[in-house]
Design a protein around this nucleic acid. Sequence first.
DNA 1: TCACATTAGACAACAAGGTTGTCGTTGTCC
DNA 2: GGACAACGACAACCTTGTTGTCTAATGTGA
Lengths: 159, 159
Amino acid sequence: MPRSGADLALLLLAGFRSLADAATEELARRGYEDMRPAHDFAMRAIIAGADNASELGRRLSVSKQAAAKTIAVLQERGYVGRDTDPQDARRKRLEVTPLGFEVLRQGEAVFDELREQWQRQIGSAELASLEAHLTTLVGARPVRLDAPGWTAHDLGGPA
Amino acid sequence: MPRSGADLALLLLAGFRSLADAATEELARRGYEDMRPAHDFAMRAIIAGADNASELGRRLSVSKQAAAKTIAVLQERGYVGRDTDPQDARRKRLEVTPLGFEVLRQGEAVFDELREQWQRQIGSAELASLEAHLTTLVGARPVRLDAPGWTAHDLGGPA
DNA sequence: TCACATTAGACAACAAGGTTGTCGTTGTCC
DNA sequence: GGACAACGACAACCTTGTTGTCTAATGTGA
């Protein structure tokens, strides 16, 4: 049982990686290779209204150039489409394709399965309370997505 | 309250980032700029016996070349020293310097403070149970540090 | 209406932290 | 002694970020 604060941090990271790695693996098994959480986040942001690169960058707290790179990947794989905005010739309007929606749907299903596994392991009430407590803690000191950055190395994993 | 598996994953990530960001900020405030969790992990591994680059790579589930790069940074900042091994001329023996130990000590103090904050927020018993449950879950499906990599972008933050 | 500031997106250069592959040197084992 | 393993160094490259600069399009205020 961890006692130090550092152990607690590591535990949270391990929990996240455990879920995320399993999800990525399963998604790859289902034919969606190289899907990464960031792609998921980006697509959701696009759906939520960030329909151009600059806006997407702002939503993800990332430079517009970085957002453009992510979009390029997503577009290459057919998950998002892009066409010029009739209202503003500077903009390229983004939209998630049916294939993109399919990936999102499957990703959600995979995560839900993983959560059910956890529920079976520690019990429904316990998992719910764990989530509730974490929500309290995180809510009290909200994640600063614009905080100093973390890289794969920081997070204990190879890239 | 989160219900989906994806929300759970995000919650864990948010928890980690919340702690880690706060710790890095505080450490920077105390004069240790550019300290990253990876540096901390690496130093601990060195202390735990990974006293050469190849071994450090293995412990961190990272290539020996990547480990060497991390060591170079740590050495440059005076946190670790290196000298040739009298027993084996191929090896360069690593050792954490007093300055390195000082950073580790302060890092620990910072994390412990953060943990205490959390304890005050949700209660000692609750935090302990959260940790215990997470340990169970993570232990049951151990974090694969050699799994497909996660980058800062994946983790929702800029680099 | 015209000048000026702002914005979108493209492109280039670079940083950090990884990867693989190669190589020379050193150790170990039969 | 010779084959093989392992250490560290070096180089090339990938990914995901970052700035900075540029052009084209748009908005705005005198």
